[in-house]
Amino acid sequence: MYKDILLPVDLNQDSSWKSALPVAIDHARAFGTRLHVMTVVPDFGMTMVGQFFPKGFEKKAVEACQSKLRAFIDTEIPKEIPTQCIVAEGTVYERILDLAKKLKIDLIVLAAHRPELKDYLLGPNAARVVRHAACSVLVVRE
């Protein structure tokens, strides 16, 4: 049923993957699919933000994040599951949606916390992904 599964994670927030990771692994095993694990680095190159960081900071941040994501995959995902490591830059929900479209993802598995009042006003990344994704989205609550 699924050929490609996307698992977005925030490496600085265990809650972004603790509940979703086992579900993504189970689905990948059950369907014999490839698991695309991604994280998003903020866009430091924006003029407003970029001026506060030293030259070359963005490249170093992406490289460090890629290394950290590979270590995460090696530690948390069983070797028999084909896995792709992806580091994107920009706005979290936009990068998730862009990548899902580009890779023709069949299922996005992501964790979500219990909504607070501020989430109803601002809209969390999970809600935006669910609303705009062209594929199935499985939201796993904590």
Rank of each mutant, 00 (worst) to 15 (best):
K3Q: 10
A64Y: 04
I73P: 02
K3L: 02
K102A: 11
V130C: 13
D4I: 02
P42C: 00
A127H: 14
L69R: 03
G45M: 10
K3W: 06
I105V: 12
Y120I: 05
K118Q: 09
S19H: 15
K3H: 09
T91C: 03
A28C: 09
R95Q: 13
A100W: 14
A134Q: 04
K102D: 03
A134M: 01
W17M: 04
P42Q: 03
S19Q: 15
D26P: 00
D26A: 15
G32I: 06
V129A: 09
L11G: 05
K59M: 06
L138R: 09
E58F: 08
A134N: 01
D74W: 06
V109W: 09
C65E: 07
F72M: 01
A24Y: 14
G45N: 10
R95A: 11
G50V: 02
N12G: 14
L69H: 08
V137Y: 05
H132N: 06
S136V: 01
P124R: 13
A88P: 01
M1I: 08
P8Q: 11
D14P: 14
V140H: 12
L69C: 04
T75L: 09
K55F: 04
Y120P: 02
L11V: 04
L97Y: 12
A133E: 02
D74F: 04
Q66D: 13
L110P: 03
I25K: 14
F44V: 01
F72W: 10
L99V: 02
L107I: 09
L11Q: 04
E94A: 08
M38T: 07
L99Q: 11
V40D: 03
K55C: 00
T91R: 05
L122Y: 12
E116T: 13
H113S: 13
E63A: 11
E76A: 08
E116Q: 13
V62D: 03
D4F: 07
V137P: 01
K55A: 08
A127R: 07
A71S: 10
K18C: 09
I105W: 07
P124F: 05
I81A: 06
I81W: 11
R29W: 15
A127S: 15
A134R: 02
R131V: 05
K60R: 11
L103S: 12
V140A: 08
R141A: 04
S16R: 04
V109P: 05
K68E: 04
K118P: 02
S16P: 07
V41Q: 12
L103P: 00
P54T: 00
S67V: 05
V9E: 12
A64N: 10
G90S: 03
I86D: 11
D98S: 07
D26E: 11
F53C: 01
M1D: 09
D26V: 02
L7D: 14
V109I: 12
H113E: 13
